[in-house]
Structures are given as structure tokens and as C-alpha cells.
Amino acid sequence: MDSLTQIVLGAAVGEAALGKKIGNKALLYGAIGGTIPDLDVFLGLFTDTVTAIELHRGISHSIFFCIILAPLLGWLVHKIERKKNLGWQPWTKLFFLSLITHPLLDAFTTWGTQLLWPFNIKIAFNSIFVIDPLYTLPFLFCCIAVLFCSRGSKLRMRFNRFGLIISTIYLLSTLILKLLAYKKIEKELDNQGIKYSSISTRPAPFNTILWNANIDTKENYLITDYSFFDTKPLKFKKFPKNREKSSRLMKYLNVQRLIAISNDWYIIEKKGGNWYFNDLRFGLIPREDGTSFFAFSYHLIEKEGKIQVIEVPKTKREAQFLMQQLWHRVIGN
């Protein structure tokens, strides 16, 4: 999830752990703990593109990391806040809760987390977009309200508890919405006589009414959108896999690593004499000229018996156009 959401979640669990004893400092230290796992993005500044992708939401988003770091932070803050005379254990509890809830929330997104690192298992429920106002804004309001309540007051506890409960209920409801969208798309494929091997669904940006789907068929990937307000049959856009044409590139280690990262949802295509690796999990972004492009695409440069991978820069987008397109699709086809 986005940084603001993780700060709010960390602050709320920090308040739940020590708010009665230390007041607003529990929010502060909880917010710090909730931010720490995402500092792994800075590692990408010192390594290559593929390694940076592999490191993101890796060890820093694991149970192992939380277990190791929580007591270290607990001991450090105990020394800093020695006047509180709490001992290191309560601080350790606060940091463990704020650290572990970060990857647990991220597990509901498309990118997922390596919660069980060092085991190479990525957990991704694909049920919430990385920025979802319906999750964050009510939670943020409750967190701000806590700041203005006296320490230990019932109102303070109720605001914080309400924020945690309503955000959790919304998060769990996204799993139900995902199932409903999956069943609708599955039924639509059967109605149109389309044979497929698997379906991957995820919410469109900023909402859980519109869902994007990738469908794996023998020769092609199909991509579609489904809104709960749709009344017409769904249209499926076809993207040839072209595995034979790109098979030569698949012998390279960097390409194999990208395939693993994409969970096999990928297309390697040649455009203008250059090869590109497209990660299908994050969908298409429309252009005003009626075309579209993949949100995550990587330029593959063959050089000295190796493949260099460079992420394709995100082109300048017209925010107003994208939001209009999103809204028109949310309200139904």
C-alpha cells in the first residue's frame, strides 16, 4: 500500500499497544515502525533493475525481519525513552505489531509480499489497489481524532478501535468482491465459449467496483474489465504470447528472473527493432489516441552474451483523461 496508509496503520496499532501509557508518542513510534519495511526501495539505488524488483517487498516484508528487528528497536527506544520506565518488552510489542501489519496489508495487493522469506513464496491476494481512498480516509480521520483526545480516555480508545475495525472489515470485504468478480468473468468466458487455463483478477485503481482480469489461453492472453454496474457482455482484448519468436531470449538469466517475478503473466514482444518484456499483472494504461500500454514494461538489451534490463520510463500522463476513463468504466459498459 501507499506510504500514507502504512503510516496510519502503524500509528493505529502503536496506539492500541501503548496509547494508554505514553499517549501520542505511541502514534509516532507506530508510524515509524509502519514505514520501515518500505525503506527497501532505497536498496534499488545501489543495484540493477531486476535485483531491485526482487528485493522490493522481500526480506524487509517478512515475519523473520519483524521478529529480528522488533526487539532491537524496542531496546533502542527503551534507552531513548528511559524516563517512561516501561522496559524494552512493551516497546518491542509496539514495533512488532507496527512492522508485521505492514506486510500483512501489502499481501492484499497485486505485488504481494515475501512474508515467509527465506522461502521463495510470494503471497498476493490481489484484492485491493495500492491506493484506495475508501480504506485510507476513514482510517486517517479516526487516527487524527485520536490526537485530540486525552490519554486513556474512552473516546480516544473508541476512535482508534473504530478505525482498526472499519478498515479491517473493508479489507476483508475486498476478498468477497474479488470472488464475485471472478465468478462473473468465469461465467462470461463460458457463455462465449472461450477455453482457458487460468484467470487472474485485481481491482482497478482507487476502487473495488471495477476489476481487471487476465485470462490465460493456449496461444493468447485475454484482458478485460468488469464493473458491478455492467449490463452488457464483456469484451476480451487478445494479446498473442509469441513464445516461439522470443524463445531465444528466454535462455538469459535476467529474462528468467523477470518471468519468475511476473508469475508467468508476461509477453515478450519486438517493437521498432527492440525487445520488451511486459508484466501483465498490472494491466494496461489508456492513451488519448485510443491506444494503450502496459503499466510495467522493460527494455531488453542484448549485450556481450547477457541481457541488460531497463525499466521503460512512465510516459507523461494526462491525469484528468485517465480519471475520466476510469469513471466512465466504473459506472458500467
Rank of each mutant, 00 (worst) to 15 (best):
V77Y: 03
W327E: 11
H299G: 05
F282P: 01
W111F: 15
N24C: 12
H78S: 15
L86T: 00
W265Q: 06
F96A: 05
Y182M: 11
K314S: 09
T201S: 13
F129E: 02
K245E: 14
I123C: 03
F125E: 02
R329A: 06
N120F: 07
G34T: 06
N274I: 04
L171F: 01
E188P: 03
I53S: 03
V50N: 01
A17P: 02
I310D: 12
M250W: 12
F294G: 03
C149W: 03
K178D: 13
T49D: 00
I165S: 04
T51S: 08
L137Y: 09
E15C: 00
N274A: 13
H102Q: 01
P103V: 04
D279Y: 01
A31E: 11
T224K: 10
L134Y: 08
G44W: 08
N278M: 08
R329C: 01
R243W: 15
L94H: 02
V50I: 04
K306R: 05
S200E: 05
T224A: 13
I223C: 04
L39M: 14
G305R: 13
L155R: 15
L179V: 08
T101N: 00
L258A: 05
N214L: 13
K25C: 02
A319V: 10
L284R: 14
T47I: 09
V312G: 00
G290Y: 12
F293G: 07
L4V: 14
T231G: 00
F321A: 13
D279M: 02
K232V: 02
N333H: 10
R317M: 15
I301K: 15
P286C: 10
T92R: 03
H56N: 02
P138C: 04
I301M: 12
L253K: 14
F96D: 04
L234N: 07
D40R: 13
T217K: 14
S227C: 05
I194R: 01
I215L: 08
L4A: 05
Q324E: 15
S60K: 10
I209W: 07
A52W: 03
G152A: 11
K270H: 11
A31V: 06
S198A: 15
I53R: 05
G23P: 00
E288F: 05
G10S: 06
Y226F: 15
F125G: 07
I131D: 05
Y221H: 15
